Amino acid sequence: MVDRAVRFLKQHTPNSSRVVARRVLCEAHNARLRLTVPVESRSGYQNVFHCAVRKTASQWVKALLSDPIVYRHSGLLPYDPRPYRWQHPQGFPPGRAVSCLFVSHKKFTTIPKPDHYRTFFVLRDPRDIVVSSYFSTRSSHTPMGDIPEVRKVLQEKPLKEGLLYLIGNLSQKGTFRNLRSWATAPAAEAVRLFRYEDLTGERQEDEVDLLMRHCGIELPPAELAGLLSRYSFSRMRGEREIAGKVSHYRKGKSGDWRNHFDDDIYEAFAAATGDLIELLGYPARD
């Protein structure tokens, strides 16, 4: 019932009302966790920070961190900065898993942090980010921010012209720049980079376990497997389709960019990103 309410609010209310509603839902969720879920073990960190750029499964990671099983084995309540009109560089309450911060590494370093914290950043092949952003913005993403304006442009253009437009749009928004900032940041024990492809691929269970342990969260194997089953992409996509919604979880397939990039699109992408593909360690164009 809560999920249906969230979907309705996302699609049918203005931004200001949506912020208030989301805040109420977040507080209600955390109140239920406190009242009904006993904490069996606690993370050694006062805050966990999930950072990313968009289209790197941020909502999926947020769902994992919000699950009662994670709270049971960490004592960390989920904290979504958006409903609270979080303003950089304001700090966050202790005992929270903050998800998700769409900020550059430089901006993240200026956020006040407790003595003991952990951060992880999720990156993805930026070519797949372009394709995923195109289909999400054009068809399925909640109409918020500049999405209605960009959606109108994309719906008026053929696929190729739409992808070219979106490459420029993402470059202007700093998506590629933010990826670069985290990839080139000095190594730090508290910060770890994870790849979308690893978190969603064949070794998903091992990779998510590694992410959780980085955050001081140790899940028993059976509970980790159950967690990943509850939030499998196929299940989340199916639930949206049953509800009559366009799936936000379209494919998630690595390398899908090869089905959509031609020479002109790749040239525009290369001009916008420079050596980013090589820097992030993804294979060059075949």
Rank of each mutant, 00 (worst) to 15 (best):
K160Y: 02
T200Q: 11
P283I: 04
E223L: 13
K107V: 12
V208N: 10
E278G: 08
T119R: 15
S234V: 00
V98P: 05
V61L: 14
P283K: 15
R285Y: 04
S104W: 01
L199F: 13
R22M: 15
T142R: 11
D263P: 02
V39G: 14
Y231V: 04
V208S: 09
K157E: 07
H260A: 01
Y231N: 07
V208G: 09
S132E: 07
S17F: 03
I129F: 02
S181K: 06
L65F: 14
D263H: 10
R240N: 00
P220Y: 10
P14R: 11
L35A: 15
I265W: 02
L123W: 02
P221K: 15
D125T: 01
L166F: 11
L164E: 09
L77C: 12
R96Q: 12
I147E: 09
V150I: 15
S66C: 06
S140P: 02
R7A: 11
N15M: 04
F120K: 00
L76R: 13
R240C: 00
Q204T: 10
I129E: 06
R235T: 01
Q204I: 03
P143Q: 05
H260G: 01
D67A: 13
V208D: 04
V6M: 11
L276C: 08
P78M: 13
G281S: 09
H260K: 05
M212V: 04
A28K: 00
A5W: 14
S247Q: 05
R127M: 04
G255K: 02
L279E: 15
H50R: 04
L199H: 05
G274M: 10
A63D: 11
R118K: 15
E197D: 09
P220D: 04
D67T: 06
P38G: 08
K106T: 02
E239H: 02
Y196L: 09
D264K: 08
R54H: 14
A188L: 03
V191Q: 07
A268N: 08
H88Y: 06
Q59A: 13
S229H: 13
G274S: 10
R151Y: 06
A52S: 15
D125N: 14
A225Q: 14
V37G: 03
S232I: 06
A183R: 12
G244F: 01
P78F: 11
K113C: 08
T175I: 15
D286W: 07
V19T: 14
